[in-house]
Each structure stands twice: as C-alpha cells, then as structure tokens.
C-alpha cells in the first residue's frame, strides 16, 4: 500500500472510532466542570447503546424506515439523561462518594441492559437493526483531491455532528452566562451560592447533560459500528472518553483533539499489520497508548492537567 492509500483507510477509520468518544467526552465535560466526577460515563454509554438499538428496532417495526436510527438517537439521549439521575441523586442530594456512585452506575447499566435484553429477546443479544446510518460521500467536498477521499468520502454524518457539537459546547461553556455559572459551581460552589446561583440545581443539569451526551455516544457506536446490542458492545469506550476528557484538560477542543487522537491509535492498532512501517511495532503499544498518554498528561509530562477545583466534593450549604 502506498502512503495515500494508507491515509485514505486510516483517517476515516480514526474519525469513526473517535465519534462516540467525542460525544461522551463532551458530556463528561459538563458534569466534571460542574464539580461532579463522572466515572459512570461507561454505564451511560451502555444504556445509550441499549436504548438506541431497541428504539431503532421498534421504529423499524412501525415502518419508519431510515428515520428510525435518527429517532433512536433522540430516545437514547432522553433515556441517558433520565438514567444519569441515579448518579445525580446519589452524589448531589445524598452526598454519596461520587466515584463510588459512578462505579455503581456502571454496574447497574450493564445489569439492567442485559437483563432487559434477555427478557425481551430471550437471549443475550438483540436482533440486528436493518436501518443503519450508512456511510456516505459529502457532495462536492468529497471531490476535492487528497482531502476529499480522506475526510469527506464514506463518512457517517454523526462524525460531523460530533465535531460541530464540540464548537457548540465550547461556546456554551465559555461564552454564555449558563457556562459561567456551570464553571463557577465546579470551581468555587460557595462563592457561586453567594452570588445566587443554585449550586445543586446547576449540578443536576450538568449531570443530566452528561447523561444525554453519553447516551448519544453509546447509541452512535451501537447504530453505526456494532449493529446490535449485547453485554460486550461497550467495553471501555466510556473510560476512554473519560481519558480523552482529562487528556484534553477539561476543554471541549482539547477533548475533541484527544478523542481524535485516541481514535487514530485505535484505527492504527487494527490496521497496523498492513502498513510496512508499523508492521514491526507490536499491537500492544498502540492499544495502550491512550492510557499511557493520559497518565503522563496527569503527571505533568505532557502539560499539566488540572481538574476543576471543587471536583468530587458534595456541596453543603453553610459548610466551609
């Protein structure tokens, strides 16, 4: 394979692998910026993947055809937001340890989703959906030489939605009053409270946003890549999204870049055997690269990653 051929295979594969990570990492950004640790992203993706597939099958049987996966994404968004209430109630109102609550959320998501799959389908996995979101060429742009085949042909529309969403999230978090309140709640809740911001309400909104985004992330993966849902559909993508969020230093563009980079590492680990220069590199290096880099970033070797100040602490009125 010559170098162009390689790029034409790897770049689209990287974009596809990165898409669910972008959605989920952006969701995690809301929650963590508001001061609520979200280890539960993985579970939110599981619930999203499950409801995305089941809703697609349901809409298909109602005869909605190719609109079904798109409507299913909406369903996954709502169910993700509702499911995240478990984490919100436990960690905000009941002041549970946020990490523990997140871990429990992951357990609950897998248990609940697979339990329901068994009850509905009488086996460990769902049927395959027939109305998938297909890869398409972007008109005109895909005809551009070099860039066209790399970035605009045979892509999923969801990838572009994810990238546009990163810009939207950046605008919301850094340029609107809502974003300022969100960040102040995560940095110094007492000061925010003094200024009349309802700390716990902001945190509820933030966690539910992370649920909505995580749900979409999981559903996008299930609908575009997997095609059905089973207990092993989402294995680690949520944690990788969390890694992207941290490696991206809790910034939307950082998270976007990190997710794309992790997507590239994933695509490389799958296709490295076909690339002469990389065939000698053991696959394991590419598999562990995202995690090693995240640790290095946290340790300050790749630029210090500082979390929001009040992260992980429940807010109690009147306490210092």
């Amino acid at each position: 394979m010559d170098i162009l051929q390689i790029l034409y295979t790897i770049i689209p594969a990287a974009l596809i692998a990165a898409t669910p990570l972008i959605f989920t990492a952006l969701g995690g950004l809301f929650s963590e910026r508001a001061g609520v640790v979200n280890i539960g992203l993985e579970g939110l993706m599981v619930i999203g993947a499950f409801s995305g597939i089941v809703a697609t099958l349901w809409f298909e049987s109602m005869g909605l055809g190719y609109a079904s996966p798109w409507l299913a994404l909406l369903v996954a968004m709502i169910i993700g937001a509702v499911f995240s209430l478990f984490h919100a109630v436990a960690s905000i109102t009941l002041r549970a340890d946020q990490v523990v609550s997140g871990v429990a959320l992951n357990f609950l998501a897998v248990g609940l989703a697979v339990f329901m799959v068994r009850e509905i389908f009488d086996r460990g996995q769902t049927d395959y959906i027939s109305a998938r979101i297909y890869r398409t060429d972007v008109p005109f742009l895909s005809d551009i030489p070099f860039i066209g085949p790399m970035l605009f042909s045979r892509v999923y529309a969801t990838t572009y939605i994810a990238i546009i969403l990163a810009v939207v999230v950046w605008y919301v978090v850094f340029k609107t009053p809502f974003g300022l309140r969100l960040r102040s709640v995560g940095e110094h809740p007492m000061a925010a409270d003094t200024m009349g911001i309802k700390v716990n309400r902001m945190r509820y909104i933030a966690v539910m946003l992370s649920g909505a985004f995580g749900g979409v992330g999981g559903a996008v993966f299930a609908i575009t890549t997997a095609g059905n849902f089973a207990g092993n559909t989402i294995v680690g993508q949520g944690f990788m999204a969390l890694a992207a969020l941290i490696f991206g230093k809790w910034h939307p563009f950082g998270a976007l870049g990190a997710a794309l980079f992790f997507g590239l590492a994933q695509a490389l680990s799958l296709t490295a055997q076909q690339i002469p220069a990389l065939a000698q590199v053991p696959q394991v290096y590419l598999l562990i690269a995202p995690y090693v880099l995240t640790i290095l970033a946290l340790a300050g070797f790749v630029g210090k990653a500082n979390p929001p100040n009040a992260i992980g602490k429940p807010y109690e009125k009147g306490s210092r």
């Binding site: 478990f86 109630v89 436990a90 009941l94 002041r95 549970a96 340890d97 523990v100 609550s101 871990v103 429990a104 959320l105 357990f107 609950l108 897998v110 248990g111 609940l112 697979v114 339990f115 068994r118 009850e119």
Partner: peptide, 22 residues
Amino acid sequence: VAPELVEIVIALIIFFVASSYL
C-alpha cells in the same frame, strides 16, 4: 429469571451503602 438481576441487586446495594446519608 435472567442472572443479570443479581448484578442489578449488587449495584443497588452499592448505591444504598454509598448514599448512607439517606
């Protein structure tokens, strides 16, 4: 009964222990 029910029960027990405030 699907065996995953047990996972659900375990997850809920963790929630309740962690939310001992309640």
